[in-house]
Nucleic acid binder design. Structure first.
Lengths: 196, 196
DNA sequence: GCAAATTAATGATTTATTCAAG
DNA sequence: CTTGAATAAATCATTAATTTGC
């Protein structure tokens, strides 16, 4: 018997076919129960574990996003180079997100990812607009009492003079434009957004 | 047409670079005037507000500490495991799979389902659906065994049977192995014989 | 034709973000 | 401010495609 039987799962064509079909149907992040069932089902076509299903969806989703992002990024670069905006608007990718397929696992009315961390970006910057219902210290509104809050309360005073960036402390940081990876301007900053 | 201009700040690579450089230089908790200056400087590279800077340093500092703590913890674990096994490493949570964990009981209840993930993964590992046992020591999580299977069991959905491949929902994926459909979409179907 | 060498895909891990609760 | 939970992003690692010299 082979000493190194198999270090990793290798999906059979049937398994792959089914997984892709599910993905096309909108499955993105199956929960434990779903993974369990999928695994059971796919095990009919070959050895498979729950983690394989989990990883598959994770990777497939990620690489799908990656593909899209790269595509958009390229477009963005073209547009940006043509206009060269002062601040490149973070390009998000409003893309795939499961249209709650009723085909798969009637749970919770078809929703699978009720609150995927997609609209996560919404919160930080909008803190001022949702400060009302803040129970206590958790909301950003609570820190508005800090000294720095006074500063940001006056966007005008700041923005009008936002142009001068010659500061003693900041001088120390040469604006060396380090080569970012790919994805152009959205590499590390990971303006990860996804739409629900 | 900037579709939904994302309500929160997304640092540009330049901004991020500068912030990180400042952090490396020792900046941790800038006061209002410092934040003001930083904001002014960074606004050259993109839209930004004082609160963004404030939050960034706050979070970055926190995560840095966390990182350090984690690293130290890991080292200690290694040393401890080599010498004495006083108690399970702090990274592990023996009670993770407790059946009363509310996370896994929302599926049928019309509740929004919280995120899943690491915990789930932990459970998924080393839970083979076929006969062959996982090669000992391949994954770092063989410690959990198949606990996840028990965990994800739904209390009242009635579909907790994972033994049969024919699941009502999965029936929808016709296992038609009509030997075809190998088009461009499955160009990645590596492995196995009948690929393309 | 064939294997060693190289490259492309992709499974599996690790790390970083994010939100929410404490 | 801290910590837990759940990803998503980044990365590592292995397998399959393919290229290449013979």
């Amino acid at each position: 018997m082979p000493q190194v039987p198999s270090t990793r799962w290798c999906p059979t064509p049937e398994q792959l076919m089914i997984l892709e079909e599910m993905y096309r149907s909108g499955v993105r992040t199956p929960n434990a129960s779903q993974i369990q069932q999928i695994t059971s089902h796919l095990s009919f076509y070959g050895k498979i574990e729950g983690k394989n299903v989990f990883y598959w969806f994770q990777n497939h989703k990620a690489r799908d996003r990656q593909k899209l992002r790269r595509r958009l990024s390229r477009q963005q670069v073209q547009v940006a180079s043509a206009s060269l905006p002062p601040h490149p608007p973070p390009q998000f990718f409003p893309h795939l997100y499961q249209p709650h397929n009723p085909q798969f696992f009637h749970q919770g009315g078809g929703f699978q990812e009720p609150r995927q961390g997609l609209d996560l970006l919404r919160k930080l910057e909008t803190c001022s607009s949702r400060d009302e219902a803040s129970p206590s210290g958790t909301s950003p509104a609570s820190i508005y009492g800090c000294e720095w809050a006074a500063m940001i309360r006056e966007p005008n005073s700041g923005e009008s003079s936002m142009c001068c960036h010659s500061l003693k402390t900041l001088e120390l940081f040469p604006t060396k434009s380090t080569g970012l990876k790919e994805e152009s301007s959205t590499s590390k900053s990971s303006c990860s957004a996804s739409t629900n």
